[in-house]
């Protein structure tokens, strides 16, 4: 009987104690930080990377690829997926160091840790779109929604559908596929 009282009072105390968390403002900094760690990847913090790579395409957050893949990307800028993206040696080193230090396998963000996982097909690939996690997340997306959709053009254009991709947020509620609408899994 005494034991049961303790259990009941514990449940009461715990439920009262949890009220502030449940009722806390969704937009509080703590909540956003927790939310980002569980659903996002780290934001880009290096202005040189943002500028140099963002000139031609959305600068991808470093936490979308593991370090070895970034290293391969940065070793081959003369033929960067068919484009020439050469950089002077000091800028290249600065960006490479940043990407490797913040790569998916070094991040404590949950989504980055998923991006860090490799399989045989993606082992020596350097495309974010070829990582097992990316393929798994996009396997229901039809080509006509992306590749032949003139407003999207390619799976590489994250920000065409992920409206907060440039803030490193890939939440489902922020997906809006042009010409199709919201995506609901």
């Amino acid at each position: 009987m005494k034991g049961r009282n303790i259990v009941i009072s514990s449940i009461l105390v715990l439920s009262v104690a949890s009220i502030p968390f449940v009722w806390s403002d969704d937009d509080s900094e703590e909540w956003q930080e927790y939310s980002r760690h569980s659903t996002g990847v780290a934001k880009i913090t290096n202005p040189v990377y943002l500028q140099e790579c963002g000139d031609c395409h959305m600068a991808y957050p470093a936490g979308l690829l593991p370090a070895d893949a970034w290293q391969r990307v940065m070793n081959g800028l003369e033929d960067h997926f068919g484009d020439n993206a050469e950089l002077d040696p000091s800028t290249r080193k600065q960006i490479t160091d940043y990407l490797i230090a913040n790569s998916a396998d070094k991040s404590d963000y949950r989504r980055s840790q998923r991006f860090a996982k490799r399989d045989k097909k993606s082992n020596d690939n350097m495309r974010i779109t070829e990582t097992p996690y990316f393929r798994h997340e996009h396997n229901e997306i039809l080509a006509r929604l992306v590749i032949t959709n003139k407003e999207v053009n390619s799976f590489s254009n994250c920000n065409s559908c992920h409206q907060k991709a440039e803030q490193a947020s890939f939440k489902e509620r922020d997906i809006l596929i042009p010409g199709y609408g919201r995506w609901d899994d």
Binding site: C56, H57, M58, F81, G82, D83, N153, S154, S156, N157
Partner: peptide, 9 residues
């Protein structure tokens, strides 16, 4: 303005 032929940026 122009448009990057591949990325469309």
């Amino acid at each position: 303005s122009g448009k990057h032929v591949k990325t469309k940026k």
